[in-house]
């Protein structure tokens, strides 16, 4: 008698479970699809400009280290002093010139770029963050 009751309960539970899952699936399938508008605007990517050819080595060359004064003229300047010191120890034949760019960090400085083009073989420009 107990066994019959147990089987009846089990069958009822299985039927109920199957029915619930089926309803849930139908509900998910019946959720309406919506078409919405895109808030993003297509951005135009810039035309590519190639890099300048690299050097074969730094020995015997001149490099300009240019501080853009991001965060103020003292904020990152010692990074360049530390670089200069590292180069003096590790590549002593490399001439290192530290320069502060004029104007805000976003401003162009064509005079300095011309100076670098004339006097330097390489440059490092920074440093933000």
């Amino acid at each position: 008698m107990r066994r019959k009751q147990f089987l009846t309960s089990l069958i009822t539970l299985v039927i109920a479970t199957v029915a619930f899952v089926g309803i849930a699936r139908v509900d998910a399938q019946q959720k309406p699809l919506i078409t919405v508008m895109n808030p993003v605007i297509t951005s135009k990517m810039m035309d590519r400009t190639p890099l300048s050819p690299r050097l074969d080595k730094l020995e015997g060359k001149t490099i300009y280290l240019v501080d853009i004064s991001w965060g103020g003229p003292e904020a990152g300047y010692s990074v360049f002093e530390e670089m200069q010191s590292w180069f003096a120890q590790n590549i002593p034949s490399l001439k290192v010139v530290i320069k502060r760019k004029t104007g805000m960090y976003t401003a162009d400085d064509p005079k300095l770029w011309a100076e670098i083009k004339q006097n330097a073989n390489a440059a490092l420009i920074g440093i933000s963050g």
Binding site: L51, S52, P53, R54, L55, V79, W113, I116, K117, A120, N121, A122, A123, L124, I125, G126, I127, S128, G129
Partner: peptide
């Protein structure tokens, strides 16, 4: 500028 250049910035 016409010379090889490297930019320096923090990771952010």
């Amino acid at each position: 500028m016409g010379v090889p250049t490297v930019g320096a910035a923090a990771s952010n």
